[in-house]
Structure formats: C-alpha cells, structure tokens
Computed example of a mutant assay.
Amino acid sequence: MLKALILDWAGTAVDFGSRAPMGAFVEAFARFGVAVSIEEARGPMGLPKRDHVASLIYSPAIAPRWQEAHGSAPTEADVDRVLAVFEPLNVEVIPRHADLIPGLLDVVTEARRRGMKIGSTTGYTRPIMEKLMPLAASAGYAPDNVVCAGDLAAGRPSPLMMYRTFADIGVWPPSACVKLDDTEPGIAEGLAAGTWTVGLALSGNAAGLSKAELDRLSPDERAALRKRATDKLAGAGAHFVIDTVADLLPVLDAIEARLAAGLRP
C-alpha cells in the first residue's frame, strides 16, 4: 500500500552526522567577525539555508555579537551577505561529505522492489545539490526527483517541497508516503504534507557525530545520545524514530500494517 519513500539528503542519505554545512556556517560568520559555535550552527538545521542563516543572525545569542562587530543590528541585507559567503564554502566541502550512509542502497533497492518511488527534498540550495547529486549517483544513489530549498516560494517546515515531490513522481495520497529525515523541520515538513514521518536519531543532525566518532562511544554514551536525539525527534512529532536508514524496513512493514487496519498518519 505504500507508494513512496521520500528522503532528506545530508544526515539521512549521505554525510553521516550531517557535517558538511557546519564548518561552512562557522567560517562564513567568522569572515564577518562573528564567532558561531558548531552547536549553535546545528540549531536550525533542516531549514532552507537562507532561513538557517537568518535564524542564526537574529538569534538572541548571536545578534549582539553581530552588533558588536558591525556597530548595528543585523538586517536582511546582512543575511544575504552571509549566505553569499556560505554557499560556495558548502559547495567546496561537499566532496568530502558525500559518502552514502550504510544501508541506504539496500533499503532503496527493497523499497523499489515493493513498487515504491524514491523522492527527495533538501534544505540545500540547487548549486549545492548540483555538486552532490553526481557524486551520489556515481555511488549508486539516484532518487526519482530532487526538490531543493529555493525551488519554491517556501521550504521547510512548509509542505510545498513535498507537494512538488508528489507531483514529480506521481504519487498520492500522502498517507501512502513515508518521509525520512534527521531534523525537526524535516519532520514538520512531512507532517504538514500528511505523510508518515520517520526520524533518524544517530546518523544526522540530532547526534552530529561521524560514523567513526559514534563507533568510539561506550554503550552507555551511545544510549544516552540515542535517547536525547529520539526525544527531540519524537517531540517534533515523528511517528517512528530509528537509528539510521539501515533500520527502516521493519518500520515500512509496521506502517503497512497500520494502513491495512485503516489507520492514517
């Protein structure tokens, strides 16, 4: 009964830990004389990148730093200036953060065997994705569509990118679709569009660690990190929360059972 699996990109399908944007945000603000930590930069992850910059620059913590560095409060023109620096920095680091997340290809292959389409939405802009898509395709991952931040009048947490995906790949109703994402805005996007939503606790922004860093954690540290990330994503409304995309197939079975019982998202 499920017709489509719609995936986010960084932290969901590629770039374990969603690390590519972080250094770019920190460096972009540093070039304007404003210090931003990795933890602060992660806060708005999942939003379209201009909205992400705006969320940072106007935040109660960072806005005073901007005013101190520039002698005036940040403006929309400043948001555009930071974004113009950020985007090429992010494009530059993409090749170092384009590895597929383990288990992705097996899940996509099985979903296609079940007759599902594979859609995608992202908070990345089109120029960033033009760098990333060929790298992912060369590794074997090429979804049926890609909708980027900036393609439409509004991005996450609105449902517009999901609506475009439904139209692009020819699927409906939303209740026959599953949205997979590692951020709260990405979960909100799926909920707004009426799909089932699955959060990823350990492969993306909610944990923020590379695969190697995650593997070095003790069992207790890993469990604590999983709980924090799961609470965050469940609090955003995710119907299910799993560690990584590799754990998705039993969830698809569970959703099929709910649909067969007449339940909807």
Rank of each mutant, 00 (worst) to 15 (best):
M162E: 07
G150C: 12
S18L: 13
P157V: 08
T197N: 06
S55W: 07
E184T: 14
A223Q: 12
V14S: 15
R264T: 13
V91M: 14
R156S: 06
A10L: 06
A13V: 03
K232M: 07
V26Q: 04
A192P: 10
V36W: 00
H70N: 03
L200V: 03
T75M: 00
V36D: 00
G155K: 03
A193G: 15
L233A: 02
E221Y: 01
Y141Q: 06
P88I: 11
G115N: 11
A154V: 09
T75W: 00
L200M: 14
T75C: 00
S175E: 13
S59V: 08
L47H: 01
P134K: 11
E92M: 14
D151R: 13
G23L: 11
P265L: 04
M116W: 03
A98H: 10
D78F: 04
G11D: 03
E40A: 10
A98D: 05
G46N: 07
L225W: 09
A238D: 07
G208L: 05
R19A: 09
S55F: 03
E92F: 10
P88N: 08
M22R: 12
S138L: 12
Y141A: 12
D106H: 14
V36I: 10
A139T: 05
M129F: 15
T122G: 10
G235Y: 01
C177L: 12
R258D: 15
L259Q: 13
A153Y: 08
L202K: 02
V93T: 15
A63K: 06
A77K: 05
A28R: 01
E110W: 06
D78K: 04
V245I: 15
A153R: 15
G150W: 06
A139M: 14
R65L: 09
M129C: 15
V36F: 07
F240H: 06
C177T: 04
D215K: 05
L248I: 07
L217V: 05
A176S: 14
A229S: 14
R65V: 02
W66I: 01
R156P: 02
A167F: 10
F86A: 02
R264K: 13
A111D: 06
P60M: 08
S203P: 08
A139Q: 15
P185H: 04
T197P: 07
P95Q: 14
I169W: 10
D253A: 12
D181H: 08
I255D: 09
E87V: 11
A229D: 04
P44V: 02
M129G: 09
D215W: 04
L135C: 09
T165P: 06
T230E: 00
F240W: 14
D247H: 07
D8G: 05
A137D: 15
W66F: 10
A201Y: 00
M129N: 13
G17T: 12
D253C: 10
G11C: 07
E92C: 13
I187F: 07
A193M: 11
V36H: 00
P185I: 00
D181V: 08
T165G: 12
V91P: 01
G190D: 12
A84M: 12
A229H: 01
N205V: 12
M133E: 13
L47M: 11
I62G: 00
G208C: 12
P95K: 15
A54H: 01
S158K: 12
M22Y: 05
I242V: 13
S37C: 08
G103F: 10
V245K: 00
K211E: 15
N90K: 06
A35L: 04
A257W: 09
V171R: 07
